[in-house]
């Protein structure tokens, strides 16, 4: 009988403790990020989708179509076509860089192996599209301009400055 009463009282105390916690939180500021208006600031290392930014000094992308990234990709999401001159001799320049975002798993391996820092993972994270075909992108034709912190970080990468 005594145990019965004791159980009820201790049980009620634990319940009240829980209620005190929820009551306390009721007067705290919400932590919600009002998404479409406010957006989270991604870190410089954030891996959004793959882009091939235009190097402002060069006026073009830095890709030499060496195919190292193609070999490094675990999912075969990258296909590079090399530019050729009139005689059919290949030039160190990519004619097209086909990137299939549908199969990409954002592992960053292609970026890490690139000896020229030609490709980089952008800060974008709203990658959903309505059409499956639009997941396949030609990065050379896109002429992506990388700006902001990520852009600075990317430039510092191939200029051998201190990494952020």
């Amino acid at each position: 009988m005594l145990k019965y009463i004791k159980d009820i009282i201790t049980g009620a105390i634990t319940l009240l403790e829980g209620m005190a916690i929820t009551f306390k939180y009721m007067f705290q500021k919400p932590i919600t990020l009002q998404y479409p208006e406010q957006k989270a600031q991604m870190t410089t290392r954030f891996r959004g989708r793959l882009v091939m930014p235009v190097d402002e000094e060069k006026g073009d992308n830095r890709c030499t179509a060496c195919n190292i990234c193609v070999k490094a990709c675990p999912n075969y999401s990258i296909a590079v076509e090399r530019l050729t001159d009139e005689t059919g001799k290949p030039k160190p320049k990519a004619a097209s860089f086909t990137y299939n975002m549908g199969t990409c798993m954002f592992c960053n391996l292609c970026v890490e192996v690139c000896p020229f820092s030609a490709i980089v993972m952008s800060e974008e994270y709203e990658l959903a599209v309505y059409d499956r075909k639009s997941l396949i992108k030609d990065l050379v034709a896109e002429k992506y301009k990388l700006k902001g912190r990520k852009g600075k970080w990317w430039i510092s990468k191939f200029k051998d400055e201190e990494q952020v």
């Binding site: 939180y25 009721m26 705290q28």
Partner: peptide
């Protein structure tokens, strides 16, 4: 009410 208790809006 539930939102305020759960730190939501």
């Amino acid at each position: 009410i539930s939102a305020r208790m759960q730190l939501r809006r």
